[in-house]
Amino acid sequence: MIVWSGRGFLSLLILFITIFLFIPILPENYITQSFVIPLYIAAVFSFFFGIKWNKTLRVFIDKETGKEINFKSNHGLFWINMEYWGIIFSVLALLMLTQSLDKQGTEFYLNLFLIIIGIAFLVYFTTTLFKIKNSKISSFQFQKTTTEAEPKPSFVKQEISTNKFENEDPTQYLPK
Protein backbone atom coordinates (compact mmCIF):
# COMPACT_ATOMS: atom_id res chain seq x y z
CA MET A 1 0.00 0.00 0.00
CA ILE A 2 1.33 3.41 -0.98
CA VAL A 3 0.66 6.23 1.46
CA TRP A 4 0.98 9.84 0.35
CA SER A 5 -0.27 13.28 1.19
CA GLY A 6 -0.81 16.10 -1.26
CA ARG A 7 1.31 15.65 -4.37
CA GLY A 8 3.76 13.23 -2.76
CA PHE A 9 2.80 10.36 -5.07
CA LEU A 10 4.46 12.26 -7.94
CA SER A 11 7.91 11.35 -6.58
CA LEU A 12 7.22 7.66 -7.05
CA LEU A 13 5.42 8.23 -10.35
CA ILE A 14 8.39 10.14 -11.80
CA LEU A 15 10.73 7.38 -10.62
CA PHE A 16 8.74 4.61 -12.32
CA ILE A 17 8.24 6.57 -15.54
CA THR A 18 11.95 7.34 -15.86
CA ILE A 19 12.92 3.74 -15.06
CA PHE A 20 10.61 2.46 -17.79
CA LEU A 21 12.08 5.01 -20.19
CA PHE A 22 15.75 4.29 -19.42
CA ILE A 23 15.68 0.47 -19.38
CA PRO A 24 15.04 0.15 -23.14
CA ILE A 25 17.39 3.05 -24.00
CA LEU A 26 20.58 1.83 -22.30
CA PRO A 27 22.32 -1.42 -23.29
CA GLU A 28 22.01 -4.52 -21.11
CA ASN A 29 25.52 -4.24 -19.68
CA TYR A 30 24.56 -0.82 -18.23
CA ILE A 31 21.65 -2.15 -16.18
CA THR A 32 22.86 -0.44 -12.99
CA GLN A 33 22.91 2.93 -14.70
CA SER A 34 19.38 2.39 -16.03
CA PHE A 35 18.23 2.46 -12.41
CA VAL A 36 20.69 5.04 -11.06
CA ILE A 37 19.94 7.80 -13.57
CA PRO A 38 16.16 7.63 -12.93
CA LEU A 39 16.86 7.71 -9.19
CA TYR A 40 18.83 10.93 -9.70
CA ILE A 41 16.07 12.43 -11.85
CA ALA A 42 13.43 11.53 -9.23
CA ALA A 43 15.71 12.93 -6.51
CA VAL A 44 16.05 16.30 -8.22
CA PHE A 45 12.31 16.45 -8.95
CA SER A 46 11.35 15.48 -5.41
CA PHE A 47 13.76 17.90 -3.80
CA PHE A 48 12.96 21.03 -5.78
CA PHE A 49 9.22 20.55 -6.03
CA GLY A 50 9.02 19.38 -2.43
CA ILE A 51 10.65 22.58 -1.24
CA LYS A 52 8.47 24.68 -3.53
CA TRP A 53 5.18 22.99 -2.55
CA ASN A 54 5.87 22.45 1.16
CA LYS A 55 6.94 26.00 1.97
CA THR A 56 3.55 27.52 1.21
CA LEU A 57 1.77 28.77 4.31
CA ARG A 58 -1.79 29.98 3.96
CA VAL A 59 -3.23 32.37 6.50
CA PHE A 60 -7.01 32.51 6.72
CA ILE A 61 -8.72 35.27 8.67
CA ASP A 62 -12.04 34.37 10.21
CA LYS A 63 -14.47 37.25 9.71
CA GLU A 64 -16.54 36.44 12.79
CA THR A 65 -13.76 36.09 15.35
CA GLY A 66 -10.96 37.98 13.62
CA LYS A 67 -8.47 35.19 14.40
CA GLU A 68 -5.84 34.01 11.95
CA ILE A 69 -5.76 30.32 11.04
CA ASN A 70 -2.47 29.02 9.57
CA PHE A 71 -2.40 26.09 7.16
CA LYS A 72 0.95 24.72 6.02
CA SER A 73 1.12 22.57 2.90
CA ASN A 74 2.13 18.94 3.33
CA HIS A 75 3.26 16.92 0.33
CA GLY A 76 4.89 13.64 1.24
CA LEU A 77 5.25 9.96 0.51
CA PHE A 78 5.13 7.35 3.29
CA TRP A 79 4.97 10.11 5.94
CA ILE A 80 8.22 11.68 4.67
CA ASN A 81 8.17 15.11 3.01
CA MET A 82 9.04 15.23 -0.68
CA GLU A 83 12.25 17.19 -0.26
CA TYR A 84 13.68 14.42 1.93
CA TRP A 85 12.90 11.86 -0.78
CA GLY A 86 15.48 13.66 -2.89
CA ILE A 87 18.11 12.70 -0.33
CA ILE A 88 16.77 9.15 0.00
CA PHE A 89 16.78 8.57 -3.78
CA SER A 90 20.34 9.92 -4.01
CA VAL A 91 21.55 7.62 -1.24
CA LEU A 92 19.88 4.61 -2.90
CA ALA A 93 21.59 5.48 -6.19
CA LEU A 94 24.97 5.78 -4.45
CA LEU A 95 24.48 2.40 -2.77
CA MET A 96 23.72 0.79 -6.12
CA LEU A 97 26.79 2.39 -7.67
CA THR A 98 29.18 1.37 -4.89
CA GLN A 99 28.09 -2.24 -5.28
CA SER A 100 29.08 -2.18 -8.95
CA LEU A 101 32.49 -0.49 -8.59
CA ASP A 102 34.30 -3.74 -9.41
CA LYS A 103 33.53 -3.29 -13.14
CA GLN A 104 36.30 -2.60 -15.62
CA GLY A 105 36.78 -0.07 -18.42
CA THR A 106 34.28 2.60 -19.33
CA GLU A 107 31.63 1.24 -17.01
CA PHE A 108 33.95 1.86 -14.04
CA TYR A 109 34.54 5.47 -15.09
CA LEU A 110 30.83 6.00 -15.72
CA ASN A 111 30.05 4.65 -12.25
CA LEU A 112 32.73 6.89 -10.75
CA PHE A 113 31.28 9.91 -12.60
CA LEU A 114 27.77 9.08 -11.36
CA ILE A 115 29.07 8.69 -7.79
CA ILE A 116 30.60 12.18 -7.97
CA ILE A 117 27.27 13.55 -9.25
CA GLY A 118 25.42 11.78 -6.43
CA ILE A 119 27.73 13.16 -3.78
CA ALA A 120 27.32 16.66 -5.25
CA PHE A 121 23.52 16.23 -5.09
CA LEU A 122 23.70 15.12 -1.47
CA VAL A 123 25.91 18.03 -0.47
CA TYR A 124 23.68 20.54 -2.25
CA PHE A 125 20.44 19.01 -0.89
CA THR A 126 21.61 18.90 2.72
CA THR A 127 23.11 22.40 2.73
CA THR A 128 19.96 23.82 1.15
CA LEU A 129 17.74 22.05 3.69
CA PHE A 130 19.86 23.30 6.59
CA LYS A 131 19.65 26.86 5.26
CA ILE A 132 15.88 26.60 4.93
CA LYS A 133 15.40 25.04 8.37
CA ASN A 134 17.68 27.58 10.06
CA SER A 135 16.09 30.58 8.40
CA LYS A 136 13.19 32.26 10.08
CA ILE A 137 9.58 32.24 8.99
CA SER A 138 10.46 34.64 6.17
CA SER A 139 11.14 31.63 3.93
CA PHE A 140 7.41 30.93 3.76
CA GLN A 141 5.15 32.40 1.14
CA PHE A 142 2.15 33.94 2.83
CA GLN A 143 -1.25 34.01 1.22
CA LYS A 144 -3.78 35.95 3.28
CA THR A 145 -7.36 35.01 2.63
CA THR A 146 -10.61 35.76 4.33
CA THR A 147 -13.62 33.56 4.63
CA GLU A 148 -15.69 36.01 2.58
CA ALA A 149 -13.11 37.19 0.06
CA GLU A 150 -15.54 37.42 -2.86
CA PRO A 151 -18.91 39.11 -2.72
CA LYS A 152 -21.79 36.72 -3.11
CA PRO A 153 -24.10 37.14 -6.07
CA SER A 154 -27.43 38.80 -5.34
CA PHE A 155 -29.45 35.67 -6.09
CA VAL A 156 -27.66 33.80 -3.28
CA LYS A 157 -28.66 36.49 -0.79
CA GLN A 158 -32.25 36.28 -1.93
CA GLU A 159 -32.24 32.50 -1.69
CA ILE A 160 -30.96 32.63 1.87
CA SER A 161 -33.48 35.24 2.94
CA THR A 162 -36.43 33.46 1.32
CA ASN A 163 -35.84 30.05 2.84
CA LYS A 164 -39.15 28.20 2.80
CA PHE A 165 -38.38 26.23 5.98
CA GLU A 166 -38.03 29.23 8.31
CA ASN A 167 -41.67 29.40 9.40
CA GLU A 168 -42.42 25.67 9.46
CA ASP A 169 -42.69 23.56 12.58
CA PRO A 170 -39.64 21.23 12.70
CA THR A 171 -41.43 18.72 14.94
CA GLN A 172 -43.67 17.66 12.08
CA TYR A 173 -40.75 15.67 10.62
CA LEU A 174 -40.08 13.69 13.82
CA PRO A 175 -41.44 10.15 14.13
CA LYS A 176 -44.64 9.82 16.13
Rank of each mutant, 00 (worst) to 15 (best):
V59N: 09
V156M: 07
W4V: 07
V36K: 10
N29Y: 15
F89A: 04
L95G: 08
F45I: 01
P153S: 08
W4A: 14
K164Q: 12
Q104D: 04
I61K: 14
K176V: 08
E68S: 07
L15I: 00
W79E: 11
Y84I: 08
G86Y: 06
W85D: 07
T56H: 12
I31R: 12
E83W: 06
F125D: 06
G76E: 03
V156A: 07
M82I: 03
L77V: 04
K52G: 02
K72Y: 13
T98C: 00
T162C: 02
F121I: 03
S161F: 13
L174A: 08
R7A: 08
F78I: 00
Q104M: 01
S135C: 08
F20I: 09
T146P: 00
T106R: 08
F20P: 01
N29E: 11
I25S: 00
T128M: 02
I69M: 05
I80H: 09
I119Q: 05
E159W: 12
V91W: 13
K152I: 05
V123I: 06
K164G: 01
F47Y: 14
K176W: 07
E166W: 10
D102P: 04
W79F: 11
S161T: 09
A93F: 05
T145C: 00
Q143I: 13
F130H: 14
T128A: 10
N74P: 01
Y84D: 05
L10R: 15
P24H: 07
T162M: 06
K133E: 14
P151T: 12
K176C: 01
S5C: 05
G105D: 13
Q172M: 03
K55N: 15
L21C: 04
K72I: 09
F22L: 10
K72F: 07
N134H: 15
K157Q: 10
F125L: 05
N167G: 05
K52E: 11
I80M: 10
K67V: 10
E64Y: 12
K157M: 10
T147K: 13
N134G: 14
A43Q: 03
F125N: 03
T65G: 03
I51Y: 06
I41A: 05
K136C: 05
T171W: 08
S46H: 07
L101A: 02
I160G: 00
I117K: 05
N163I: 01
F155A: 09
P24C: 00
S161A: 14
I88E: 07
F89L: 00
L13E: 13
K144T: 11
K55P: 02
L94V: 12
K164Y: 06
E168A: 04
G6K: 12
N134R: 15
L97N: 12
I116L: 12
N134M: 15
N29H: 15
S100G: 06
T126A: 08
V123E: 02
Q33A: 09
V44T: 06
F142M: 15
G76D: 02
V36Q: 06
I25H: 01
T162F: 10
K164E: 13
L95Y: 01
K63E: 06
T128I: 04
T162Q: 13
F47W: 09
P175W: 04
E150A: 07
I2R: 13
P175E: 11
F130Y: 14
S135H: 14
K131C: 03
I14W: 08
L26V: 00
L129K: 14
E83T: 06
L101V: 06
I25G: 03
F125R: 06
M1Q: 14
I69A: 03
S154A: 11
I137S: 15
D169W: 10
I115N: 08
L39H: 07
V3A: 10
E83Y: 07
